[in-house]
Simulated scan of single mutants.
Amino acid sequence: MIITTTWKHNFTNYDNLTEINKAKFQHLKIFQPLATKKIRFQMNNLYDETPLTISHLEIYNSAAHKVYVTLNGKTSFKIEPRLIQWSDWIDVDLPSNTFLSIDITSPKVEIHSVGLTISNDLIKTQINHPQMPKYFFGISAIQVQTEQTYEKIAFFGDSLTNQGNFSAPLAKDLEQNFHIMTGNFGISGNRLLHQGNSTSQWSTSFGEAGFTRFDHMLANFQPNIVIFMEGINDLLHPGTGTPISELPTSNAVITAVHLLKAKCKKHDTTFVPMTITPANGNMNNGVPGWDNKKEQVRLAINRELLKMPHIIDLSTLVSENDHLKSEFDCGDHVHFSNEGGKIVANYIKEQLIRKRMF
């Protein structure tokens, strides 16, 4: 028996959300690339101080063939505070390249252990607007039993990764066409060198510094390749709700990136960094998030990144006069649009193929 992770999405602490499960019911559809007869689910209550009670958790490909997910043989169960726990192995006849439907019934309305996506490519909620944030709870990973091992790619970064407008279509392409499994380890608002520290209501959800949480990702997911995209928030946040004293030097960011590469080497993992994309014109908490000093730091970081092996120069693709090109800009001058993300996804795939990464 080989246990293979077929879907993984980073959860974080949304302590400002008070009614994430207002309906006391959640319907999800999560893409599953592999056929299997056995499946299990990672239940996540990592950031809550009270148990996550699951009244029922049902999975199905068609409404006529629903299967209950159990924990310790029970269809109704609790995940204790500050823990994650795997369900029992569930018998299922799941074909490849299928969206698995998941219904979660829970009496708990206020839940802080939450995932976020914008893209509909890998995970679908009851909201399908292409640019609207979708929050979901309960399940943060899926594993199946397979007959062979599969290569794994981790997408590590901030909201540009977490939202999925480039990472989700790229992940789906890699899974369907190259049989490479993926995991999304992006956290919106995350910084490389500092944990969340802002007057923003979202500050707690920004998570611990990317430099330290990178270790958890390497140890737990054990990827063959890490596609790394982080650093823009280290420049964007200071002065816009975060102390300006936390604005790093280009040398600090570059040193951290090289240390992450060294960590990957110890795990026999290939580190694929990407250049930092621009944020000129962004407004953060009603304050301009960018200025010439930040832009010069970004450019200095990118000059050094371009000297690294396996680097993917995303900034040159999406930039024009130090701004995001309109075809990539969702409107806030930082994040990718749905269509722009798909262009980025295809570009990264082409670069990975050209560099003979798989």
Score class of each variant (00 low, 15 high):
16 N>F: 15
315 S>Y: 03
337 S>Q: 05
62 S>Y: 01
207 G>T: 10
341 G>A: 04
41 F>V: 07
264 C>L: 08
89 W>G: 02
312 I>K: 00
272 V>Y: 01
12 T>I: 09
248 P>K: 05
148 Q>Y: 01
341 G>E: 11
179 H>C: 03
70 T>S: 10
185 F>Q: 05
162 N>G: 04
20 I>G: 01
67 V>T: 13
42 Q>V: 00
218 L>H: 01
250 S>T: 02
75 T>R: 08
24 K>G: 01
151 E>Y: 06
28 L>Y: 06
285 N>W: 01
280 N>E: 13
298 R>F: 10
174 L>G: 07
127 I>K: 12
331 G>A: 06
6 T>R: 07
165 N>R: 14
115 G>E: 02
195 Q>Y: 04
44 N>S: 15
78 K>N: 14
316 T>S: 15
282 N>F: 00
128 N>Q: 15
347 Y>F: 15
26 Q>C: 10
267 H>A: 11
322 D>N: 15
240 T>L: 05
308 M>P: 06
228 F>Q: 10
148 Q>L: 00
62 S>A: 10
247 L>D: 03
309 P>R: 10
117 T>L: 11
119 S>Q: 07
126 Q>D: 11
57 L>F: 07
90 I>R: 02
170 L>W: 10
13 N>W: 12
346 N>D: 14
296 Q>F: 04
292 N>G: 00
62 S>F: 04
334 V>G: 03
153 I>S: 01
283 M>W: 09
12 T>C: 12
99 F>A: 04
35 A>R: 12
4 T>D: 01
16 N>K: 11
254 I>N: 12
143 Q>D: 14
335 H>W: 06
321 N>S: 15
90 I>K: 02
